[in-house]
């Protein structure tokens, strides 16, 4: 990727102005720039905005857009509130060196189909906060995108939840063939599926089957897992066929649900 002009604003106001008024392109982790052939007229680097943080505010946890995967993987607050969920979700992404570069914001804003993280964020019911004051359900943003150029400031997570992430890959450092995260929020079940290979989607029919029972039977878990595969669309690519993904998914969902239910 070629960047013709570069700016590293020190305030979110200025970054937003450059994106909105001067048609700047926000630069998050920048890990994919090397393999992209696009030309950017104005690159707006978000590194100077202080958006790398994980903190508890009121009844939720805020994760800044420039927080790296490695920080998600090792953050004590996230581990205390979500167990190994974030570590398991991002630890398959190449190596520590790349995870020290890739950011939460870059992944969410890119709405990448292959993303591990977006699946977990959607399952947690995360919300995306766009500067200056727009809050959108993250699953909805992944599905529909944004109508105008935006600046993703942070992601809001619930204060805690019990969840697990399952995926299948051909090789460890590759993109997943299919992935899923199952979450018990304390009042409801949530299931998200990504790498279909299209972007992450929730599974409302499967979630409805599970209802508000924290200990559904094995039969109900199996039905929900099958429902998840039935309600989603799958595609074929170099890694797997749509049929293969459809067959594998219920196995992963059932395993994930059983793990969370205990």
């Amino acid at each position: 990727m070629e960047i013709l002009k570069y700016a590293c604003p020190q305030s979110t106001d200025e970054a937003f102005r450059l994106i909105r008024e001067e048609h700047g392109t926000a630069i998050g982790g920048a890990a994919w720039l090397r393999t992209n052939t696009k030309t950017i007229a104005l690159g707006v680097d978000l590194a100077g905005l202080g958006l790398g943080y994980v903190r508890e505010i009121g009844d939720h946890i805020e994760v800044g857009a420039m927080t790296t995967y490695r920080e998600l993987e090792t953050n004590p607050l996230l581990r205390a509130r979500f167990g190994a969920l974030f570590e398991t979700t991002v630890s398959h992404v190449v190596g520590v060196q790349l995870r020290n570069i890739i950011t939460v914001g870059g992944t969410v804003a890119g709405r990448y189909g292959f993303s591990d993280l977006n699946t977990t964020l959607c399952a947690l019911g995360a919300q995306a906060v766009f500067y200056p004051d727009q809050i959108i359900d993250l699953a909805q943003f992944i599905e529909r995108g944004a109508e105008a150029p935006f600046l993703l400031e942070k992601v809001l997570l619930p204060a805690s939840a019990k969840g697990t992430y399952h995926q299948m890959r051909i090789s460890e450092n590759d993109f997943p063939i299919i992935n899923t995260t199952a979450v018990w929020t304390g009042s409801e079940w949530r299931i998200a599926v990504g790498s279909r290979p299209a972007a992450t989607r929730l599974c409302p029919k499967a979630m409805a089957l599970l209802g508000a029972d924290p200990h559904p039977s094995d039969d109900i878990l199996a039905s929900a897992a099958r429902a998840a595969a039935d309600e989603l669309q799958f595609g074929s690519d170099i890694r797997a066929s749509a049929e293969y993904r459809r067959e594998i998914l219920p196995v992963l969902v059932r395993r994930a649900l059983m793990e969370v239910r205990g």
């Binding site: 490695r70 790349l98 020290n100």
Partner: peptide, 22 residues
């Protein structure tokens, strides 16, 4: 392309892939 690790350097003490680091 950010896959092999041969280009690793430390930036402020943290290992990063220099091929993917702006």
């Amino acid at each position: 392309t950010g896959n092999c690790g041969a280009c690793t350097v430390l930036v402020d003490g943290k290992p990063v892939l220099s091929c993917s680091y702006l």
